[in-house]
């Protein structure tokens, strides 16, 4: 197939965009390979020789606390994203497929919720959790991230497009209960959308800094973001651990990349789009 010349411009733009996104990552990769002595002496894009030494040092730092932070991040992001996806999918399904009084009000309030940045909510949430005696617990970071208005909004949009009313109607005629319709008809059709929501939420929680920073006092419960920050702001009277921070940042994006690569195959839309066609 002949390429049309008009394709050059969009392709060029996309290449630029890709460069824009990949440059910082490659910077992290290259910088992580530099030993402390090389960090500020070698050219920005010249790889160094200290990657393994950096990883070893990071592994030894405070008896391997980095891996504990990594595990915490997995718990927060994995657990939080999973719960959040379920809650969003069920609420989105309900909002899309049922007509009930107050439906629009709820939806509008959700839209309003999207407009409120979660950063604004962190401190009030902290004060609330303190009242409940739950500050500085794993729940303090998990619970506030489960309800995510934007994910519910996405789920609703996806459910109205992906779950045909006629299919639900057919199920009802066959005598399926509403719960069964949700689990056996609705949610399976929504899987691609749910994967999207899961990935969004996972990345958002993985990268979240302010909420765990405020909620947690015990450094054994820190996620990676807050943990690495303690390395960065370690007071001026000792050498800053730049090489460990950059190496830590590099290691902390590996799970994200792995997740995206493995989840990609679930990201097939339109597979079930033909369920009622034809």
């Amino acid at each position: 197939m002949n390429r049309r010349p008009v394709g050059a411009l969009p392709t060029g733009l996309l290449v630029l965009g890709a460069l824009y996104c990949l440059l910082p990552v490659s910077w992290v990769l290259i910088s992580a390979s530099k030993s402390p002595g090389e960090l500020f002496t070698l050219g920005t894009l010249t790889p160094g020789t200290g990657l393994l030494e950096n990883v070893r040092e990071l592994d030894a730092y405070r008896d391997g606390v980095f891996w504990r932070w990594m595990l915490n991040s997995v718990v927060y992001a994995g657990g939080g994203a999973l719960l959040s996806t379920l809650v969003s999918a069920v609420s989105g399904f309900a909002l899309a497929k049922y007509r009930f009084p107050g439906r629009n009000l709820i939806f509008n309030v959700l839209i309003g919720g999207i407009l409120v940045p979660s950063v604004v909510l962190a401190v009030p949430q902290y004060l609330l959790f303190s009242k409940l005696g739950m500050a500085d617990t794993y729940w303090a970071v998990l619970l506030p991230q489960i309800l995510h208005p934007y994910s519910i909004y996405l789920a609703r949009v996806y459910a109205s497009a992906a779950v045909p009313d006629s299919l639900l109607e057919a199920g009802r005629i066959d005598g399926a209960s509403e719960g069964r319709l949700l689990w056996r008809v609705g949610l399976p059709l929504m899987v691609p959308g749910m994967v999207t929501i899961f990935l969004f939420q996972f990345v958002a929680i993985w990268n979240n800094f302010l909420l765990p920073f405020i909620m947690l006092g015990d450094d054994g419960k820190f996620p990676l973001t807050v943990g690495l920050y303690t390395l960065l702001a370690a007071g001026a009277n000792q050498p800053s651990l730049y090489n460990l921070i950059i190496t830590g940042a590099l290691l902390s994006i590996i799970p994200l990349i792995a997740l995206f690569l493995t989840m990609q195959r679930y990201w097939r839309t339109d597979l079930s789009g033909g369920a009622v066609k034809g």
Partner: peptide, 24 residues
Amino acid sequence: VSKQAGGDDAAAKFLTAAKAGNAP
């Protein structure tokens, strides 16, 4: 010991914790 990030943020965090009654 709970190792925190130092600097201005540490002060803000302590003040918030004290306000909520969770100060160390």
